[in-house]
Design a protein around this nucleic acid. Structure first.
Lengths: 186, 186, 186, 186
DNA sequence: CATGAATGAGGATTCATTCAT
DNA sequence: TATGAATGAATCCTCATTCAT
């Protein structure tokens, strides 16, 4: 990846979050990235493609570290805890990326293909969560709900700590996981 | 409210959801509403004001029935259950409105004043939830978290049932509330 | 037709001829027509549609008078002579329109539908010429050639007189028709 | 001429015909020619110069063979017939080149200098035709008209045979010349 | 000679808003 | 109230040309 291409992605992330997709001129992205307008279109065929590439790039960044931690031999519960902890931390440390997911997770600008590629990235992260729903360790339920509940609680928690940064203490973090887990327990 | 004004609000709701604020031309709203472009600006000084009025109108519609049910003398727990049940039902029955809140809850187009007005509408609905956090009935926590947790679980649940309509059974609804509640219980 | 719409067509005719389709900015057309850019797109959905409407409009103008003269009962030869004379005169008196046909007769910007509509306009003008090829009055040939020969000679002649206006005398006009006709005669 | 330079000219010919001068990006020409954009500007200072060089190159190709055949001692009439036959054949066998002349013969992109150079190439081909007009062999007329008539009939004929390839038979070819000649004969 | 990333001026089109009817 | 033609600033994108490698 060229330096300029990366600069464009960085500028685009900030601007799309702050102003939304349709309210962010490509000229502004280029300006913030310190390149000419033409350069933007040299690297990304059009604005939509830029957006889709950005989406995948952010997803990849988030997953990168997660993958590695899961390769070790640990129990299912430990895996769940690890995924929760890692994700929570990563999202809190990357507030822009978190807002990006929140705002654009359902955006029609993201193409089917991009969505599929993103799904594939998450395949082996989703696995332990699905496994959990079938493990007998928790209330009887179905995988789709557990998956959505996990993600929902995660987002709710991050959003909360982002709104009240002073509440982001070890104690409150533990409590959040506890609430999540107590909800599921038999 | 004139018939035409209402038609404009109805058309705007659908279009804003489907296409986003900045990607929805006022001309298209007018067309879908069956009025001339000029007519739209006759009723709403500009696009932003139309959006803000729409936001408040949707909020009011949701609260309307909720208020009444809370006026009776019932226990705190019953109130919480009532709010949860009513909201869940209303949102599921009004999917467009739900999507509207999801997409635009954080939109910068909503003015401070509009946001305050909306807050006021929810004042006595928020009350029981805040009371709960101080009631000793649940894990020790602070009101802001309980509030966000309530809303987060609610949205998570509705979103889930919207994605999997066939899962929207009495049993699963109860289970969702149970999970929410178990999470909080001491 | 609005006054402004007509002004746009007039300006477009001159500019397209002088500069070609792709080298004529819509902004310039609007400027020459004395209207705002937006007005141009209010009347013509896009540049190509403007071009196609212009093409048809010019064709219609040329045919208008021609049609009437053919409705009378005159011999085949007289009809041919009339068509030749009328067309030659009209084209010489409308040099811009002539150049327009020359430059853009084969332009890929003209859509199939436009081409068909134009053909229909010429249906009963083409008729006598086709009839001629089957009349036995001339060398044995086939209609398609006679048609192309007629048009080719017409264009050649007009082009010539346009290049050398001082040669545009009654005598030379007669001679041109004579050459055309001698070529065909048995 | 380098291989690459020739490849650029070949690609340019096809693309200019198909899309017109202003609608043909230099990047596309380079791509079709299998070279880098920079390479194109290495061989031709700019797009206009490329176009002018292409024009002259095509003219030269057409004339090449014609010149030789005229150097022999034959009668005026034979010369005329030879020019007609050779040109007709060459144009039919080089349809792209023919379309190129048709479309761009009057293009303002061709510079005065280029136009003069092209004229010079045709000097001794034009000679017999001009001589014809003064020979007394044909109707009394003036050289400019004979010249234009010759070229007009030639183009008309080629165009016709290109539109109806199945009509391109020896018989029809003779007839075309006959019509051309009968038109002129006293 | 050859390359292709980078440039930025230019052009087609859109759209919120106005205003005369 | 209602209309829709008119406006022109704003935006996405293209493309001839340059230049460092």
């Amino acid at each position: 990846m060229t330096e300029k291409k990366q600069a464009i992605l960085n500028a685009a992330l900030d601007l799309f979050i702050e102003r939304g997709f349709h309210n962010t001129p490509t000229s502004l992205i280029a300006k913030e990235a310190g390149v000419a307008t033409g350069t933007l279109f040299h690297h990304f065929k059009n604005k939509e493609i830029l957006f889709n590439e950005l989406y995948l790039s952010v997803k990849r960044n988030m997953i990168e570290g997660l993958q590695e931690g899961l390769n070790t031999e640990i129990s299912l519960l430990e895996k769940i805890g690890y995924i929760w902890g890692y994700s929570l931390n990563w999202l809190i440390k990357h507030p822009q990326e978190f807002r990006f997911f929140q705002e654009f997770g359902n955006s029609p600008v993201i193409s089917k293909i991009t969505r599929e590629e993103a799904m594939n990235l998450f395949a082996n992260i989703a696995e332990p969560i699905i496994e959990l729903s079938e493990s007998g360790l928790i209330k009887e339920s179905y995988p789709e709900f557990i998956m959505d509940y996990f993600q929902g609680m995660m987002y709710t928690t991050v959003k909360h700590f982002m709104k009240y940064p002073e509440k982001f203490t070890d104690e409150n973090i533990s409590q959040a996981f506890e609430i999540f887990w107590n909800g599921l327990e038999k």
